[in-house]
């Protein structure tokens, strides 16, 4: 007795293969859908924005007149924001990662901190905005200045730095640490002189990705209270400020009133995407160039 009826199989084979090929085409098309959206999006933004970009657009202050409006205030605001976010998030992120990977005993406290960080990563950014508004802007009475926005943003991107640094530190092989101990180095000396230099490329990649997230984030800063009004160019971390995404936001919602504002928003998006592209390229370059495989 035959277990397989070959005529039956033959009859069904054609439709099964066809289903397979149809599905393959469908899967391929849906993968292309993402690519298509990306192309349309970039085409639209370039078409609307590119003609508006010139040196005046970059160097001018904000203005209600679309012809004279520029984003110099938003550019300096973004840079000042990074002056706060970068050191704070690096100190907190790398410190936490070192503690979790090198010092913490595998116990309740470290697993609690880890769960906490992964939950923090899932908190919507607008809720971080509320935290910043309540704690930094109002309770500490900083107002909606660079420092308040920067601290909020640093906490928001903290999980990115922690997770990337943890992975980088974990990838440093044990024999490097043992060699260092063997030569009489203490634990902290080993971390400082052996582990951190070896983990640096991975950590830097994480930091750059975190900063590029911070540069593109809008909601927390709108919540903290960046006004749509014309404000002076910020001179330090205690000044009021605006940043590129917030500028895009106000121009986009006002484009119902003045059509040219949509072009200004698109032009600002081009600049923002360019900045993010450069930062991500640097991150990828560091990852590919300096990351050692042991």
């Amino acid at each position: 007795m035959k277990y397989v009826d070959s005529t039956q199989v033959q009859k069904k084979m054609g439709s099964r293969l066809m289903a397979n090929n149809l599905a393959k085409t469908l899967f391929f098309l849906s993968t292309l859908f993402g690519l298509l959206v990306l192309v349309v999006l970039i085409y639209r933004v370039l078409k609307d924005g590119l003609p508006w970009i010139d040196i005046d657009f970059l160097m001018n202050r904000l203005s209600t007149d679309p012809e004279r409006a520029g984003i110099w205030g938003a550019i300096t605001g973004t840079l000042w924001l990074m002056v706060v976010v970068a050191p704070v998030t690096m100190l907190l992120g790398i410190g936490t990662a070192i503690y979790l990977e090198e010092y913490a005993t595998k116990g309740r406290i470290s697993s609690f901190i880890k769960t906490n960080i992964s939950n923090l990563a899932g908190v919507p950014s607008v809720v971080f905005g509320i935290l910043g508004l309540t704690v930094f802007a109002r309770t500490l009475d900083l107002g909606s200045v660079v420092l308040a926005g920067g601290l909020t943003m640093a906490l928001l991107v903290l999980p990115v730095v922690v997770v990337a640094s943890q992975e980088a530190i974990r990838a440093v092989p044990q024999f490097l640490r043992e060699a260092s101990y063997g030569m009489g180095a203490t634990k902290w000396q080993t971390i400082k002189n052996v582990v951190l230099p070896a983990a640096l490329p991975g950590i830097l990649t994480g930091v750059i990705l975190a900063l590029s997230r911070a540069i593109g984030e809008t909601a927390p800063l709108v919540v903290i209270g960046i006004p749509a009004l014309l404000i002076p160019i910020p001179d330090g971390i205690f000044d009021k400020f605006t940043i590129l995404p917030v500028q895009i936001y106000y121009w986009t919602i006002d484009s119902a009133l003045v059509a040219e504002y949509a072009n200004l928003a698109a032009a600002t998006i081009v600049i923002l995407l360019l900045v993010l592209f450069v930062m991500n390229s640097i991150a990828i370059l560091i990852r590919n160039k300096f990351q050692k495989r042991y």
């Binding site: 999006l41 590029s212 936001y249 949509a262 993010l276």
Partner: peptide, 19 residues
């Protein structure tokens, strides 16, 4: 390409949706 799509700030998607 998917990674680029994931890295685009939400404000840009907002502009895209609206305009």
């Amino acid at each position: 390409i998917l990674e680029i799509l994931a890295g685009i700030p939400t404000i840009v998607y907002g502009f895209f949706a609206f305009t």
